[in-house]
Nucleic acid binder design. Structure first.
Lengths: 210, 210, 210, 210
DNA sequence: AATGAATGAGCCTTCATTCAT
DNA sequence: TATGAATGAAGGCTCATTCAT
């Protein structure tokens, strides 16, 4: 039975890989089930053996990237959980993620689906993964509040949310308006983001940084 | 010929009104050209006399809201251009705008279309309106830098971009995760936003605010 | 505007004709919307301009035959409303109808859809037409009861229903088992039906049983 | 090898039971081979080991009910073969059968498949069972003709066919139009059927008409 | 200018059946 | 024998767009 599961995972993986390729190329809405089947080298019907429909494929792909993002954040904190080193590590991890998977970064930022009780497993997993990411960052912030490196008047979770919004916004803006930023400010995308991260850092240090 | 133009504007306006109504009700993708025509009381073909297609209608509607947003920002600064009063005024104007036009706030925040040279007039107009909004805020920031109320190490325009990302992110997050915020933090959407605005203000004041 | 309606009727008529041809050839379920479009010489999309979907086409075709059947019954009674001449005339009209439109005869016999209040117009029309047929026959029976030609202990409407079931059954049986009847009884379909009609006639001429 | 046959019968039986359950619940066309396999606890492919396809399963189920019906008729005549007691017993058996298996009653009534020479075994069996039912009733009628209780001018087999059509029609009508009958005639389904059976009885007791 | 009419190109999904193991 | 895996062939329906009038 182990083999069977492995084969199923293999096939699901192939399909998801094809889907990812196409989603990145043409966008999710513009990718048809036909496209995915062709790209994956399966017949269209076969996709329906491994997934209940296009939506499940989309959600599975999103979940994969949610997990990837969580790993990126966890990795960043593992390598450097000092302050503000860990902060920058997270920022850079997010920026790198957005570079690699622009489509999913935007989706994840905009993800709202608070799962109803009856939600599909996969949506619940997406939600939970989002929670785990928040918890990781919250833990980091909370630890440094305790150590006196951070002085803010609000709960760590709230700070995480606000920072998340700020950092996410800066990264997205940097990516979307790169040419504009270059032209109007003479900055590279990376410089712009770096300044933005510094800028936002002030919100939790309470004084000019660096 | 003045009359002819006026008639054209009248017809375009009717169509756009219908489109706005439907877009807000059902979403853009879910609104068909048929729907718009019916709602506007024109034949479907007639829409194509006044617009080149659905996309142009969508863009025109977005432009309208861009302009609305510009007016909201301008109005906020006109009523209060002190510091940090003007800052909060802008924040609140943005929050109110998002309440009134959630669909378009998200689009505007995510707007990337840096017009290519061959871009349609309407996309250029959207772009220009975005610029004007930035200029308004930039002017406000620059003035208070000059007055010594703000001490930041980066150009005003850059600060505007970063703030814009932060404030926009906070507002969007507050709206999309309202139930979550309520449950996890015990805050109303408004309280969360207020804290976020305060938080972000630190980035430009250089010390704990208020 | 009269012209427009006429054109619409023309197109609907073409589509229905094509549908009727195919339904008779291959059966209703085996006929696809594609088939109908091709046969009618329209694009598939165009069918959806004139009908809301396959079901409406099917119902419209059924309605047409319901009306045809009503006319056949009315015609039979108009030509001969004596007793039992009218009875045989109706029987023969039904038999002829079944010969011409076997598919629809069976559908009509099995028709049950008592329309809900919200039913589509066309289903209501089908129902009403069925009622009208019953009323026609009921009127005939009732008249001859009054004249003393028929002595039955039940209301005319009830007799109509029972006769309808009997005559319909005989006609269907005769058609479906024609070879069997030929082989086992040495009767032609027509002879078998004639005997059946005679047989059933006893139910309304004979005296109370038992 | 006896064991092997027994096993085969066991498996076929399980599959047919599952099919019967599903057909009654959802209708034949709405039941997929997948459904049957799942319900029976076999893999879909295994069904194809025991049956040549969905159609054979359907036919086998129909055959089962044909046999059931034959047994019902035989049972009715065994309990009461007097006149007209046997007649009513048969009528009631048929009505009870239709109550229990509406789906199959209608199919059996409409069954036409006069088996071609190349027909599948199962279709031949269905046909033969139908014949046996006819023979049972024919024997009953013939016996009472001999005893003088029935006076008709046609062969017993023919009378059986016509009665069959009439009785079947009355039962089907009663079931399908129950609400209508209630509303328009103030009769229960049972009363309506009873009147119908009485009515049809006249065809074989009353004297020659005309 | 205004529109009635027509449609091409898709879209997601279903299901009975086959076949290698 | 039993089955997991794969699929060919449809199927009903939608919608933005075009064009002759």
């Amino acid at each position: 039975m182990k083999n069977k599961e492995r084969l199923t995972e293999f096939n699901r993986g192939n399909i998801l890989s094809a889907a990812k390729r196409l989603f990145s190329e043409k966008g999710i809405a513009q990718t048809t089930v036909d496209d995915i089947a062709k790209e994956a080298g399966y017949s269209k019907s076969t996709l329906y053996v491994y997934f209940s429909g296009k939506e499940e494929i989309v959600n599975a792909v999103i979940l994969e990237h949610f997990i990837l993002l969580k790993q990126a954040v966890a990795g960043a904190l593992q390598e450097n959980n000092g302050f503000p080193g860990g902060y920058y590590a997270i920022c850079n991890a997010l920026a790198a993620f957005r570079d690699a998977y622009p489509l999913y970064f935007d989706i994840i930022l905009g993800e709202l689906a608070i799962p109803k009780d009856e939600a599909e497993t996969i949506l619940v997993q997406i939600y939970n993964t989002g929670e785990e990411i928040n918890t990781l960052i919250e833990g980091y912030i909370a630890a440094h509040i305790r150590q006196g490196n951070i002085r803010i008047g609000i709960p760590a979770l709230q700070a995480v949310f606000i920072l998340w919004a700020g950092i996410g916004g800066v990264i997205t803006l940097a990516a979307k308006k790169e040419p504009y930023i270059q032209k109007a400010m003479g900055l590279t995308k990376e410089q712009f983001m770096q300044d933005g991260f510094d800028f936002l850092l002030k919100t939790i240090t309470g004084r000019e940084t660096l």
